[in-house]
Simulated assay, not measured.
Amino acid sequence: MRLAHFHALRPVCPACRLQGALAPLALACVEEERDEIVRSGVLGCEACGNRYPILDGLPVLVPDLPRFLSDNLFYLTMRRDLTPGVTALLAEATGPGAGIDAIRQHVSSYGWDHWADQDPAEAGGEQVEPGQVSRVLAQLLDGLPAPLPDGPIIDLGCGAGRTTADLAERTGRLVLGVDLSVPLARVAWDAVVGGHVAYERRRAGLHFERRSFSVRAEGKADVWIADALALPFADEGFALVTALNLLDCLRDPKAALAEFGRVLTPGGACALATPFDWSGAATPLANWLGGRGGRGAQGGEGARCDLALDALLSEGPSAAGALRRSRAPGEAEWRIRLHDRSSMQYLTHLSWSAKGQPGLAA
């Protein structure tokens, strides 16, 4: 966590904010600091007494910290200095689908797409080209109104961090990447703050190839662990909210849109990309935006997820907070690499909205 970014963003206690109070967080303890970057320490709330750790440079700012730590203890305490041979042995011993195998696959797909185009040892010849996330972000940014109001940018569900880095480079603003995945947030922090990318690329089966290389880190970006449904910030602090392939991974998409609008400054913009790839493990069926059987509220088409999202971003009883659609939506292809012989292809829905700006006619 860069000290300058902590002072500029002025985070509040996430537990207090959910209770309607804006209690600022303070640095209660700094155990490791280098070049104005806190790598280990504790943030504290004087109002409620809650304390939040800074682990490997990542502040963990979630409302229910004990539950988060319990659910993520494996990833939080997982060693990062294991050699490739030992890692492979542990993966084989625990077997396919175990925790270490699942997270290696997850980080492989995201790490490759986000950063492989900057890997000098990348030989090419893959089924899909890396950098898809950058191309989708560029399409979203090209559709934004200009100029944006003053203020920082928050990149929700930043994954391995490429969108956070691209936003900082393109806008020159302070950009905060936010994610709940500890392994992905670590890759992102190492890249955008430390200037180094390290991940394991899956080749086939349980065979992974370790990749490690330097990237440019200009000091305008940071990565924190936080919940997109309970952001640890006061109202109206950000000029732009971006969220790529996040909305269909949240337990309550409608509440998330309201939260995105809450932290936007008046006139601020929100740019979303989502494939509507619903999963009951992430989002309860009752909260899916379309995609269910039977007849939906929009023209009797229950599968029209885009229409359901549009209703949340329009005036009326279904509106989700202050966001209003600012231009017609779009679509973009997005292919995800799984291993040398496999990939998945999505058609992701692009949506632009602004705080309080009336939507366009459909």
Rank of each mutant, 00 (worst) to 15 (best):
E36G: 08
L27F: 13
S40W: 03
L82I: 10
S109R: 12
G157D: 11
C158R: 03
R67A: 15
L144N: 08
D101C: 06
A160W: 02
C158L: 05
D155V: 03
P24S: 11
G131H: 04
M78L: 15
L156G: 02
I103F: 14
I54F: 06
R135G: 04
P53L: 02
P147E: 12
D64T: 06
P24Q: 09
F74Y: 15
F74M: 11
D142V: 02
A93P: 00
V30H: 02
D64K: 02
P66K: 08
L156S: 01
E122W: 15
G131P: 02
I54T: 02
G85Q: 13
M78I: 01
P84L: 09
E31N: 12
D142Y: 00
Y75A: 15
I154R: 00
V62N: 03
G124H: 09
L89F: 10
C158N: 02
L27I: 15
D101R: 03
E31I: 01
T163S: 13
S134M: 03
E46D: 14
L22W: 09
V42I: 13
R162W: 02
G95Y: 05
H114Y: 07
T83D: 14
L27N: 05
V60N: 00
R104Y: 13
L144R: 06
V107W: 04
A28D: 14
F74A: 14
P149K: 11
A21N: 08
Y52F: 15
E122F: 15
A138C: 01
G157N: 07
W112A: 01
L76S: 02
M78H: 13
D64R: 04
A26Y: 01
L43C: 08
Y52W: 08
A123R: 15
L61E: 04
G124C: 09
P120V: 12
A160F: 04
V136A: 07
C48Y: 06
L58R: 08
H106I: 08
A146K: 14
Y110G: 00
S134R: 15
L89C: 06
W115N: 05
P130E: 04
I153E: 03
D56W: 11
P66I: 08
V128A: 11
F68L: 07
L58H: 03
R51A: 12
P96C: 02
T77G: 08
G97A: 10
S109Q: 12
T94P: 00
C158A: 08
L22A: 15
C45P: 07
Q127T: 01
L90A: 12
R80S: 13
G159I: 08
A116T: 01
R104A: 13
H114T: 00
M78A: 15
R34K: 12
I153K: 01
Y75Q: 13
L58E: 04
T94Y: 11
R34A: 14
G99I: 05
C29F: 04
D113M: 04
V30S: 14
L55W: 07
N50S: 14
L27V: 14
V128G: 09
P84R: 10
